[in-house]
Amino acid sequence: MCLGIPGQIVEIVEGVDAAGKLAIVDVGGVRREVNIAFIVDKEHTVADCVGDWVLVHVGFAMVRIDEGEAAATLALLREMGEYQTEIDSMQTSAAGNPA
């Protein structure tokens, strides 16, 4: 229901009112100003946000994307593929054996 797209924060917009917490995000070469208030806290300051991959929705960075979790999801899918290739090759070689 809610279009969200991954983008990378490339710079903080300086000089606007402090409450704004604005940054420029890059989505495939397209740039847009986004509000980063939702991803900033004591441990992760405004300055820390540069380079972050975030999920952008209606002009707000909603969450920092967890790179480790993304890698884990893809690794699982890769293993699934490799496992099947293995089974396939076992079946092929079994079928290819002279009876």
Binding site: L3, I5, G7, V27, G28, G29, V30, R32, V56
Partner: peptide, 12 residues
């Protein structure tokens, strides 16, 4: 183009 794709993704 990558940028056209980016614009399409961000704006749906």
């Amino acid at each position: 183009r990558e940028e056209v794709r980016g614009a399409c993704e961000i704006l749906g």
